[in-house]
Design a protein around this nucleic acid. Structure first.
Lengths: 354, 354
DNA sequence: CTGAAAGCGCTTACAG
DNA sequence: CTGAAAGCGCTTACAG
C-alpha cells in the first residue's frame, strides 16, 4: 500500500475492498484486474498466471465490485425495475416471482415497487426507478384509463426510453415500449360464452376499481361475450368496488336482496369472486345451486375454496419470463406479445335453477 | 452549451440529462445545482432566485439524478436488499409488501431476490446484493440449520456489515446484525397447548423442509408444547416434505392408511395444512369430525378454505415495518425484536371423536 | 497482452 | 452563499 491517502478516506479507516486493492495485491494494474474480473473482455486470458493471481487476490480480500461505480463507468446496469400494484396480491406475487426467476438467469437484480393502485405513487416510483438507471422497467401495474392519470407516467417512461431504457407494459402502455397482452379481454369473452352455454341469461358483475385498464378489459370482454348472444347486463347489476374479498361479500348482499336476482355473478378478480361465494353462503344462498359465480386469473386460492371457483387462467409464469425476455430486447420497433386466457370450469358454476 | 465534448460521448448524441446541463441552463455552478436538488443541505436556501432557477431548469429538462453517481460520490444508497424464499408464497408476499411499503416512507427502493430455498442461490444473491451496496439487507429467507449452508452466507453478511451495511435477520442470524423473532417457537407451543386442551393426545406433524430454522423452530415449539402435557409424537408421525399443498395431500394419504391414526395433524405451513385438509376430504375423512388439522402463519388462504383453518397468526405487517426500522438503525449493538404468534381457533379443529 | 489515463455523473470539503 | 476542484470506484479507448 504505497502513496498517501487523501481527505475523507483518511478519516475513517477504509474497510471496503476496492479493485485497486485487488490489483495491488496481485501486482497488476487496475486495468488488468478489471479485465480478468469482467465478462466484458471475452477473449481476454491474461499472460502467465496473471489471471490466477488476480482471482486469488480477489478471493483473499473478499472483493465484491461496486456496482454503482461499474454502472457509472460502463453506462450499463444489471438491474430491472418492476412495478406492480401489490406483491401481497397473489396475482402479482406469482408474476413477480417468475420475473425474479427469469431475471436471475441473466444475473439481473430486480427492484420491485408497489403502487397500491395509486397513480401518484406510480408516477413517483417511475421517476425513482429512472434515477436508478435500470436496464429496463416492467410495468405490471395495470394502466389507468384516464389520461390525466396515465399521461404523466407515460411521459416519464418516454424519457426513460429516450435515454436508452427498455419499457415493457403488461397493461395499457400507450405506445411506450413493448406490450404484452395477457388475455384479459378475450379470456373474459370466452368465459361469458361458457356461462351462457351453461344456460345463464341474467348476470351481475363485481367490477372492481374501474379506473384500471385491466378491469375495463375484463368487463368489456365479458359484456361483449354476452352481447355475442344478445344478452345485456342491467345497469344496477354492475357493482364497482375494490379488489378485496370484502368487496365481494358486499356484492353478495346486494344481490341477495336484489328484486330480480341474476343467476350468475362474474367477479373481475378471483379474490372478489371468492368473497361473493363466501358472502352468498353466509346468507344461505347455495352456490352454484341458486347462483353461479366465476372469477378471473386462477390464482391458487381459486382451486382451494369450496366450491372451487370457475375462472380464467392466465399463464403468469410464462408472462413473467416473456416480460424479462422483452426487457432484454432493445429492438427499435416495439413488439407485442399476446397470451390467451383459458377458461377453467369448476364447481362454483352450474346450470341455473329451473 | 459551450466547450467540446470528448471521446465516446461524442459518438452517440447524448440523450440523458446531467446535473451539469441543469446547472448550465440555470446559470449556476454544479455545486449550487447539487445543493438545491438535495436534501443533504438542509439549511441551504440559495441567494435570490437561484433556487427557483435550478428547479425550473431541472423540470424543463426532465432531470432525474443518476443514483449510481450519487451513491458513488456520497457513499450512501437509497436501496434496501430483501432476501425471501419465494414472493409467490403468501407469507413472503405479505412480508415483502409491508417491507416495500415501509421503505417507501423513507424513499428507499427495495431490491428483492428469491432464493427458492436453495442455500447456494442465497449465497450468490447476498454477494450480488453486497455489490449493489444497499444501505441494509433484510434476510427474510429462513436460515438453514446446517453450518455448511449458513456459514458462507454469514461470512458474506459479516463483510457487508464490516463495510458499514446493516443486516436484519428474521430467522437464524447467528450473531450477524439485528434479529427478529417472529413467534415461531412460542406460537407453535401455544398452539399445541390449545389442541391438547381440545382433548387431542395423538398427533402427526407435516414437517416441511427440515433444513430450515423456521421449520425447526415451529416443530420444536410444537413438540415442547405437547411435552408440557407429557405427550410425545411418534417417530412415524413426523412427515418431512416441501412447502406445497401436494405435500400436505400426501401426508393425508399416509395418515388415512396409518394403523393408529392420530386425531390431530399440525402442518408447519398453512398451505401444507390446507393440503392435508383437502387430502383428507378427498379420501372421505371428515375434518374436523374425525381428524383435526391446524396450520401456521395465518395467510389469507387459511380463513378462506372450508373448514377454515386453525392456525397461528404472525403480524407480518408489523414485522415488515419493524424490519425496515431496524434496517435504518446503525446501532453498534445488535438488537433483538420479538413478536408473538397468536393462536386462531377456527373450524378445522374440534375435540377428537369419542 | 498490459498499463497510464481519462471519463462516467455526482457530492462535498475548501477557500473565497 | 458560491464555485472550482478533488474524489468516489470502476471501465475502456489508446498507445505501447
Amino acid at each position: 500500500m504505497t502513496g498517501r491517502q487523501i481527505g475523507r478516506v483518511d478519516a475513517v479507516k477504509r474497510t471496503t475492498v476496492r479493485l485497486q486493492d485487488v490489483a495491488e495485491l496481485a501486482g497488476v494494474s487496475l486495468a488488468s484486474a478489471s479485465r480478468v474480473l469482467n465478462a466484458n473482455s471475452p477473449t481476454y486470458r491474461g499472460r502467465g498466471d496473471l489471471r490466477e493471481r488476480v482471482l486469488a487476490a480477489a478471493a483473499e480480500l473478499g472483493y465484491e465490485p461496486n456496482l454503482h461505480a461499474r454502472a457509472l463507468a460502463s453506462a450499463t446496469s444489471n438491474t430491472i425495475g418492476l412495478v406492480v400494484h401489490d406483491v401481497s396480491d397473489a396475482y402479482f406475487g406469482l408474476l413477480s416471482s417468475s420475473v425474479v426467476r427469469a431475471a436471475d438467469k441473466h444475473d439481473l437484480l430486480v427492484t420491485m415497487v408497489c403502487t397500491y393502485r395509486d397513480p401518484a405513487s406510480e408516477l413517483k416510483y417511475v421517476k425513482l426507478l429512472r434515477a436508478q438507471r435500470p436496464r429496463a422497467i416492467i410495468m405490471a401495474a395495470s394502466g389507468y384509463t384516464q389520461k390525466a392519470q396515465y399521461g404523466p407516467i407515460m411521459d416519464e417512461l418516454s424519457k426513460f426510453e429516450a435515454a436508452g431504457g427498455v419499457v415493457v407494459s403488461l397493461a395499457g402502455g400507450r405506445g411506450v415500449g413493448h406490450r404484452m397482452v395477457v388475455g384479459n379481454k378475450e379470456g373474459a369473452r370466452s368465459l361469458a360464452h361458457a356461462l351462457v352455454e351453461l344456460g345463464h341469461r341474467t348476470f351481475a358483475i363485481a367490477v372492481g376499481p374501474t379506473a384500471l385498464v385491466t378491469v375495463r378489459d375484463r368487463v368489456d370482454g365479458f359484456r361483449q361475450g354476452l352481447a355475442d348472444h344478445g344478452i345485456e347486463v342491467a345497469k344496477d347489476n354492475l357493482y364497482p368496488g375494490d379488489t378485496s374479498r370484502e368487496a365481494g361479500m358486499r356484492v353478495a348482499e346486494a344481490i341477495k336482496s336484489s328484486p330480480d336476482r341474476p343467476t350468475c355473478v362474474f367477479g373481475v378478480f378471483d379474490v372478489v369472486a371468492a368473497g361473493v361465494v363466501a358472502g352468498l353462503q353466509r346468507l344461505g344462498v347455495d352456490v352454484p345451486g341458486e347462483v353461479s359465480v366465476a372469477g378471473f386469473a386462477d390464482v391458487p386460492l381459486a382451486a382451494q375454496i369450496t366450491p372451487a371457483l370457475t375462472t380464467v387462467s392466465i399463464p403468469l409464469d410464462l408472462v413473467g419470463q416473456q416480460a424479462v425476455d422483452l426487457a432484454l430486447t432493445e429492438s427499435a420497433v416495439p413488439r407485442t406479445v399476446s397470451y390467451q386466457g383459458n377458461v377453467i370450469m369448476r364447481q362454483s358454476t352450474a346450470p341455473p335453477p329451473a
